[in-house]
Design a protein around this nucleic acid. Structure first.
Length: 153
DNA sequence: GAAAGTAAAAAAT
DNA sequence: ATTTTTTACTTTC
């Protein structure tokens, strides 16, 4: 359990692999305080992410991704989108030869948001949706990353 | 197997 | 600027 700027997060693992990250309760204040529960490599990563210090993806070997085929490909491809970068659904689709609709479908079932940065995938003329707290949270995350890059590029 | 669902995009209006 | 195809992959009958 971890209280972040976007709300209370819960992460679940299985063995030494990360299985899911969910938002237990949303929080609207901009209070940047972070409260963490038990520490492990995953909460540790999250804490430095929310401190604006972590800019790298965690290695995919730490993730348990219960999909095969395109959905899995899409999720793994997403790990190559860097901090503060954004791509559209269509762009990501092109990289692995599929359609934007399929990318959206894969995003909507991403079990590990933030670890797998689906908030960096946006619509062409709009921000698009986000399962971990809706559009405002997605926007917050993108602005947060942008702010951190400006602070210390 | 077919049909419906999906966090999209392009084309048509 | 809104509506209507087109799209391909997964899930659910």
């Amino acid at each position: 359990m971890l209280i972040s700027q976007i709300g209370e997060l819960e992460i679940r693992g299985e063995g030494d692999k990360l299985v899911s990250l969910t938002l237990v309760s949303k929080r609207n204040s901009n209070n940047p305080s972070l409260i963490s529960g038990s520490e492990n490599v995953f909460t540790g990563w999250l804490i430095s992410y929310f401190n604006g210090k972590e800019r790298k993806q965690m290695n995919e070997v730490n993730f348990l991704i219960p999909f095969k085929g395109k959905t899995r490909e899409i999720l793994l491809e997403l790990l190559r989108v860097g901090y503060g970068e954004i791509v559209t659904y269509g762009e990501l689709a092109k990289r692995i030869n599929t359609s934007p609709r399929v990318v959206g479908n894969a995003m909507s079932r991403n079990p590990l948001p933030i670890f797998i940065p689906c908030h960096r995938v946006v619509r062409v003329n709009d921000i698009g949706n986000y399962s971990l707290g809706g559009k405002e949270t997605k926007k917050w995350l993108l602005e947060f990353e942008e702010r951190n890059l400006k602070l210390k590029p």
